[in-house]
């Protein structure tokens, strides 16, 4: 993986992204923190500055302002030009409605697909073109183990993640041989504000720092799919083998 060039953290206020930013800044990477809430982004930048003595850029870009993506992208690249090329993008924005919310509210269902799938694909395409032209860079994107199988408890969220994982697999194929790394990250349940309502066993919930270390290690080693913590690769491997009639009975 190319170490030079700033790294864009898209959705930099996310619990997992915050841990990833810290892990990268500790290593010495320069970051561009992207999100929709400027004050919140500044708080993250201040954190990195105080912890590691690293200055980061803050860039406001709302995933749901879809007509503005082209302009935002151009501004971000132009603003970055004096500092050299971009090194990569880590993408973390996401929502997780409960099934009850999704079933009751068309708006919540649409928001789930917009934030988790449609807009990420549009935005990541812009960066993919940039890295393809540059002949280097990475796209590391938070999908989820929830996308590996359709499940009653999270069919809406899971479907958007399944779509995202499939799109990333296709993107990887299309960028094969260009020097660009496309990394699909599939965390299991992680302690962040997203899982405030999680009711499952506490031992299955990972710390965001664990996910962050797996992501950075995966980048350093050029891994295309990162399960975090790693045992989820094994668990999901088994669950994927189950016929639907049995998979239905796995709790959770």
């Amino acid at each position: 993986m190319k170490k030079s060039g700033s790294i864009v953290i898209f959705g930099a206020t996310s619990g997992i992204a915050r841990a990833v930013s810290r892990e990268l800044a500790k290593r010495g990477d320069v970051l561009v923190l992207v999100g929709r809430d400027e004050a919140a982004l500044r708080a993250e930048a201040a954190d990195l500055a105080a912890r590691f003595g690293r200055e980061s850029r803050v860039f406001v870009w709302d995933l749901l302002e879809r007509e503005l993506h082209g302009r935002r992208f151009a501004d971000l690249i132009a603003g970055e030009a004096p500092f050299g090329a971009l090194g990569g993008v880590f993408f973390a924005s996401g929502v997780m409605p409960t099934e009850a919310e999704a079933e009751a509210s068309p708006a919540a269902t649409r928001l789930n697909f917009d934030v988790n799938l449609t807009e990420p694909v549009v935005v990541l395409n812009l960066f993919a073109g940039y890295f393809r032209a540059q002949g280097s860079g990475f796209l590391s994107v938070l999908s989820s183990v929830a996308g590996d199988r359709g499940r009653a408890g999270n069919k809406t969220y899971g479907a958007s993640k399944a779509g995202l994982s499939a799109w990333l697999e296709g993107l990887r194929a299309s960028l094969h041989g260009t020097g660009v790394l496309v990394q699909t990250v599939k965390p299991g349940p992680t302690r962040t504000p997203l899982t405030a309502g999680y009711k499952g066993p506490a031992v299955l919930v990972a710390a965001p720092e664990t996910i962050a270390r797996a992501v950075v290690r995966g980048l350093e080693r050029g891994r295309t799919t990162v399960y975090a913590p790693p045992y989820w690769r094994f668990v999901m491997g088994l669950i994927r083998l189950l016929p639907e009639s049995l998979a239905r009975k796995v709790p959770g």
Binding site: G15, A43, E44, A46, D47, A49, A50, R51, G53, R191, T192, P193
Partner: peptide, 19 residues
């Protein structure tokens, strides 16, 4: 307070941390 885990400012000359 698990998610209230940000450093706010550190003055490395005076050694004062706000968090």
């Amino acid at each position: 307070t698990e998610f209230l885990d940000r450093f706010i400012a550190f003055d490395p000359v005076e050694g004062v941390l706000e968090a």
